[in-house]
Design a protein around this nucleic acid. Sequence first.
DNA 1: GGAGCGATGTCCT
DNA 2: GGACATCGCTCCG
Length: 198
Amino acid sequence: MALPVLPRAFYVDPPDVVARKLLGKVLVRRDEGRRLAGRIVEVEAYFGMNDPAAHAFTGKTARNAVLFGPPGFAYVYFIYGMHYCLNISCEPEGQAGCILLRALEPLEGLKTMAELRGLGENASPRLLTSGPGRLCQALAIARETHNGVDVTSRRSGLHVEDDGFVPEKVAASPRVGIRRAAEWPQRFTIAGNRYVSR
DNA sequence: GGAGCGATGTCCT
DNA sequence: GGACATCGCTCCG
């Protein structure tokens, strides 16, 4: 009775299109039998060479190489000396679009998530996965373990499932925490969801 | 509940 | 050397 995993074809479209489609899908982290899952409620689209705010804007480097590869792979990077951020590559190979996952609504494994976050069992579930750094910590996602993994494969330990949920309303707003192209509304959220960050 | 700010590693200029 | 797709703490209202 396993739910379908999003296939590579899902990620071939431009980042704004894939970003909207990802809202409502379920990010699943499998590790040694335990299963952590959360519904994607907030994402941001990053384009490649035409987007001054994108990591790929200045061209291919060792750090962002995954973005120039095929769609459906995890791009995990380290930021501000202490946090990881998870992206999924999209567009055909050679084009460097990606989607930043900014917030989840926790569904499975909340107790483990709280432990990984260093919080007590009774901490508010809003503190578990509402924010790009938080969700990586709650799901034990790091660059060393997950950069470049195939999120269309169950065997990678990180994949996205479709449980049939369809958001009622999607809202668009400017991306968070960037300086360049700061006005461009490429942040998408499930309108009214409590687990959206900030 | 919101503004201000320090922590801290990696990458590019 | 500076910027950085962040977070959690303090202080103030």
